[in-house]
Structure formats: structure tokens, C-alpha cells
Computed example of a mutant assay.
Amino acid sequence: MTGSLAPNYAPLPVTIVWGEGAWVRDADGVAYLDMLAGYSALNFGHRHPVLVAAAHAQLDRLTLTSRAFSHDLLEPFADALAALAAPAVVGPPMVLPMNTGAEAVETAVKAARKWGYEVRGVAPERATIVVAAGNFHGRTTTIVSFSTDDDARRGFGPYTPGFRIVPFGDADAVRAAIDETTVAVLLEPIQGEQGVVMPPDDYWPAVRAACDDARVLLIADEVQSGLGRTGTTFACELWGVRPDLMVLGKALGGGILPVSAVVGRADVLGVLTPGTHGSTFGGNPLACAVGLAVVELLATGEHQARARELGAHLHTRLRTLTEAGLIARSRGVGLWAGIDVDPERMTGRELCERLLKQGVLAKDTHGSTIRLAPPLVMERADLDLALDRLAVALV
């Protein structure tokens, strides 16, 4: 081990120094197409001019007050985000701003437990939450306690109790896991880290029905899937299902700074009274300025439509690669895809290294799978260029 940086990542051998839109350059001036977009944090590309302008303007005024005081953008940001989410959640919604996606998931867990004790009448210290195998909700000690990824979990015990793990995509298993102690079901609409794994079409409606029948909360983790990625503002809209709480992050910060939020039922978030939960930086002025600009970009529907249009083209071309025998299978929706290669041909890491030499940035996961999540602002010609280079890397 050399240097001062902790070795918790094994990045590809490239050092990025500049980015604009879907393009980045390394320290040697070599250009690359970014097909990962910061795990969807860069839905609007690198240095989107509207978002950069909002950040610059706020930097000249005020950056932090802490939540000990209010500021002039806190309520406007909450109102705008609530309005954007209102058609997609059980509402009218309330907004609780935080910073990272994992922090927002923790907030949703705390709110669900407190609601369960104070409103649903669950016995003290008995609350349980149903989650799915293959999940990825963050890396805090509580969250890795219900991870099924051994790398994420191993060595970090003792683990937090109160979670029941069932197979992803199995609504009957969700229903069977719910009992008098259950306060919530927490799921990703589409499992991103697992390789953009899509559930059966009847899964989310059936889970919603199970939660309604048992009077428990449905929490959707839309940190990766939300804010335009799937061709809808939120992935749950693909199935016409409205969760009680929705967890947002990544793209909410516009690729400029960490911004997250829990959005949903006021009677649930309302149990978090002063002193019970908080964050020094949550809802800070700079975050609200950028987050408000992100919401305004999404309010037109332009980026969602672009994700649908380019996404259809992306998946058509991936099917062609499958038919040609270059990839084993692909799946996804909108501008989001998981690609499996034959493990006897190469690993996902090896494919990403080949793509790097072709001037394309992507990320592997779970052996021989890679994920593609290009910025929603990518030009069609650039998307085709990246896919042409993918074909070359696969040969």
C-alpha cells in the first residue's frame, strides 16, 4: 500500500480533470464518453450550465446556516420538490432534506419505526422492516446489516436487528414476511447495483396491495432510479404505484454536491419532531439552490422524454449485440442498462478496461456484468459512438 488514500476503491486507471455534458478528459488530454454518470448522480451531465449558474449565484450569497436558522431557499426547495413528487407518492407530500442517499435511507428507516410505534401501535423495540435480497441502499452499519452482498457486509458486525430479507421480485414472499411487528417494506424499484435488475410487471402493484392490506408503509429507494433515469420522473411510475415514502439523492444534487431527501406522507415524516432527527448540512442554501434548479429542469418533462427516446434506441442496439452473440443478455429501461457477458470470455472488469482503451467509461458489478447509465443530455450520435466502441471491445 502506498500513498495516503484509504484503499476502499479499485478505480480504473484514469485520472479525470475536466468534464462537460457526456464527455470528460484525463490528465493527458484524452477524451472519454461517460457511460456511468456517477451512478446516476450526473443525470444532467457534467457541469450543466443551469446548475453551475445556480451554484455560482448562491456561492456569492450564502452557503450554510445549519438548521438552527432558516434561509430563503429552504421552503421554496421543499415546495418545488413536493410538487414534483406529488403525483407519484401518497400525499400531499412533505419533504425532509438530507445530504447523501444513505443518510436519506436511514432517515426513512427512523421515520418508519417511529411511526410504527406512535401510530400503528407496534410494541416498543419490536419494529421490523421487510427488504429484498440483492438490495443496495448504502453502506452505513444499519444498512449493511440487511445487505446480502458479502463484501459490503463482512467484518462490520454486530449487525442491526429488525430486518427481514425476502427474494426480490417475489410479492408473495413480501406478503408472507409481514406480521404485527412490520412497519414498512423498503425496496428499490429496480436494483441498480445488482446489475439493473427489473422486477416482474405485477410485482410493485402486488407489494402495494400487501402493504395496504396490512397497513404498513411502502418505501421506494429512488436514489439511483429516480429523477428521469427510467424515462419517468420516478421509476415507480412505470407501474402506476405510489409509495408512502420515497428516498431521493444522487441526481438531486446535479452532480455538484450531495443532496438527498425523503418525500412522502406528512403524517409519517411529521413524527420526526425537533430534537428527534437532524443534519447540520441537510437543506443548506447551496444544496437548495442546486436542488431547486434540478427540480425546475425536470418539471418540463424534457429530460424524461429524452431518456425514453434514447433509451429505446439503446436497448434496440443492445438486443442486436445479444443476437450477434457478443453479450449474453441485457435488461433495463430508459437510459439504464445491465449487460451480462459470458464469464468464460471475460469479466465485467476486463470489459470495462477494454472500453477504457476505446474511450468509454463504464462500471462492472458482480462478476461479468457491467452497467450503463449515460447522462440524459447525451447526444444520440455520442450514444451510437459509445455503443460502436462497446461492440469493438466485445470482439
Rank of each mutant, 00 (worst) to 15 (best):
V290N: 00
R153H: 08
L257E: 04
M35D: 09
A209G: 06
A55S: 11
T273K: 06
R317P: 11
L286D: 02
D213A: 15
A261Q: 03
E193R: 14
Q191V: 10
A82P: 08
V216A: 02
V377I: 14
A324G: 04
V24N: 09
E237H: 13
G311L: 00
G121P: 01
R380M: 12
R306E: 10
S368R: 13
Y39H: 14
L310N: 10
G283A: 05
F281Y: 14
R61E: 09
V90M: 05
G155D: 13
A293Q: 03
A391S: 12
R306L: 11
L248F: 00
T63F: 09
L257T: 02
T276D: 08
R67Q: 13
P243D: 02
D388H: 10
D212E: 10
Q224D: 14
D179Y: 03
T141H: 11
A307D: 06
P13M: 03
V109P: 01
T182G: 03
P199K: 11
M35W: 06
H366R: 14
L217R: 04
G21L: 12
A31H: 13
V52Y: 02
D384F: 13
I219G: 05
G255I: 02
E309S: 15
H48R: 10
A78P: 04
R67E: 06
R265G: 03
V271Q: 05
